[in-house]
Design a binder for these strands. Structure first.
Lengths: 141, 141
DNA sequence: CATGGACCCTGTAGTCGCTTCAGGGTCAAG
DNA sequence: CTTGACCCTGAAGCGACTACAGGGTCCATG
């Protein structure tokens, strides 16, 4: 058997919603193995590649870095090991996401404060510019 | 008048909490004007530079891009114009921040769902790996 | 006056995850 | 046999810096 329905890079691109250039990039950086080549030197992908690329795309969509994706792929291949390591990678990533959310929420509050003060006068009396400018540093001889 | 207390790049760095390399970078990309030089070719900054760099740092800390910082600086110099343009830049940025927060919150929910399903067995039956893997694509001849 | 160490200079390369481009080659349809 | 869609490689670009290599300057000691 070993069903042979080799996909071109364009077909794989459409099947996974990844750009052709990104697929070649994944090959370069080692998250997707180099496929066989046709007589005309075209990449010919099999089902294993499709599965692996889908995995990579999903993990990337969830915000995992390529380093984390590499680790998840490595862990996914060690099928008899405990999956606590997988859980740990996911929890660490969740922690990062939560930190970013907190940072952005603090930022949002500050921006809302700035914008709320705008009286739509001239730049000369603009509260936003004032808030960004340092407290009167002029005339300190 | 015209107080001369020139700052070295290191002193400016400490005064603003910006690395020396970042200051040189801001000069290169035109958000901080090139200062005078000493006889030994050291950069010599004045109070105007300190003010301008402080402005840049605050805007950057609020997450404005360097392009937005350039626009805010330009607007800040046109002191008689209406400040609606300033308000617009800030509102656009707020919109971006809010979009990022929404994206990250969706991500957080997905990750929490994944992690909640971990039964701490082996990788073979790991729900996180399963969730990342494509639905059975094998055997489609 | 020489020396050491802190500071400064320029220019280049690296980070991350791709995207974009230049300059080609391959292949199937008409 | 030509057209046009697809494919190839390799290099450069993005944002906003950081890190380094290989030097020069300055000042306080000994």
């Amino acid at each position: 058997m070993a069903a042979e329905n080799p996909l071109s890079i364009g077909a794989l691109s459409k099947a996974t919603g990844t750009t052709v250039e990104a697929i070649r990039w994944y090959e370069r950086v080692g998250v997707l193995p180099a496929p066989a080549r046709t007589a005309g030197n075209y990449r010919a992908y099999g089902t294993a590649h499709l599965e692996r690329l889908s995995f990579v795309r999903r993990a990337r969509d969830l915000g995992f870095t390529l380093d984390q994706v590499r680790e998840l792929l490595r862990l996914a291949d060690e099928r008899d090991r405990p999956c606590d390591a997988v859980d740990r990678v996911a929890r660490e990533h969740l922690g990062e996401v939560e930190r970013k959310i907190a940072d952005l929420e603090a930022l949002r509050r500050e921006l809302q404060g700035l914008i709320g003060q705008c009286r739509h006068g001239t730049v000369n009396e603009c509260r936003i510019i004032e808030a960004l400018s340092p407290a009167e540093v002029r005339d300190v001889p």
